[in-house]
Computed example of a mutant assay.
Amino acid sequence: MKKYKFNVNGNNYAVKITNVEGQTISLEVNGTPYEVEMEKEVKSSKTPKLVRSSAPRTSAPKAITRSAKQSNVVAPLPGTIISIKVKEGDVVKKGDLLMTMEAMKMENNVLAEHDGTIDSIKVSEGQSLLQGEVLVEMA
């Protein structure tokens, strides 16, 4: 449908609106799908509520399965990457430290959710990111 480019805190985001149904807008941010629910009446400037389109969540997102063999590790909170402890091709076990990020003035460890191999690292040290952004692709 429509494509937009945003620059937030020095980071570029390509946003593509794919579907609009009532108050729900389906969109992709840098290739990651989201559903945004717009409130009917906006009295002041508010940020739309982002809802993961793949599955209902009960806690902060950790890994989203893309296929039977590949999954993505996503940012549990908005923040900044402090250090990356793995590289592409590394074999990791469940609970291994992948990276450390600063969020809400605290250091947060991002751990492997399952055993696997690091296919690609989608972030770099010092990069700011939003909740739900893909950090690492694993197989």
Score class of each variant (00 low, 15 high):
residue 85 K to C: 02
residue 135 L to D: 02
residue 2 K to Y: 03
residue 85 K to D: 14
residue 40 K to E: 15
residue 123 V to I: 12
residue 102 E to F: 06
residue 93 K to M: 11
residue 55 A to F: 12
residue 113 E to N: 09
residue 91 V to N: 07
residue 100 T to K: 03
residue 122 K to S: 15
residue 125 E to P: 00
residue 79 G to N: 06
residue 58 T to C: 00
residue 15 V to D: 08
residue 71 S to L: 11
residue 93 K to V: 06
residue 106 M to Q: 03
residue 47 T to V: 13
residue 64 I to S: 11
residue 3 K to M: 00
residue 103 A to P: 01
residue 86 V to C: 01
residue 33 P to F: 10
residue 112 A to S: 13
residue 30 N to Y: 05
residue 71 S to I: 11
residue 49 K to I: 12
residue 63 A to M: 09
residue 45 S to C: 09
residue 108 N to D: 03
residue 61 P to Q: 11
residue 11 N to E: 14
residue 60 A to S: 06
residue 40 K to Y: 12
residue 78 P to M: 05
residue 134 V to I: 09
residue 69 K to V: 08
residue 38 M to G: 04
residue 103 A to H: 07
residue 116 G to E: 02
residue 89 G to P: 03
residue 104 M to A: 08
residue 3 K to R: 15
residue 92 V to Y: 02
residue 137 E to N: 04
residue 61 P to C: 07
residue 119 D to K: 15
residue 137 E to P: 02
residue 123 V to F: 09
residue 90 D to G: 02
residue 128 S to R: 05
residue 2 K to M: 03
residue 12 N to I: 10
residue 104 M to Q: 08
residue 119 D to H: 10
residue 83 S to D: 05
residue 129 L to K: 11
residue 93 K to Y: 14
residue 82 I to F: 09
residue 65 T to N: 07
residue 100 T to D: 04
residue 51 V to K: 13
residue 44 S to D: 08
residue 52 R to I: 09
residue 25 I to P: 01
residue 61 P to M: 11
residue 63 A to R: 15
residue 44 S to E: 15
residue 64 I to V: 14
residue 86 V to L: 05
residue 81 I to R: 11
residue 51 V to E: 12
residue 68 A to K: 15
residue 38 M to S: 09
residue 7 N to T: 10
residue 60 A to M: 06
residue 125 E to T: 01
residue 66 R to F: 10
residue 52 R to P: 01
residue 10 G to Q: 12
residue 75 A to S: 14
residue 104 M to W: 12
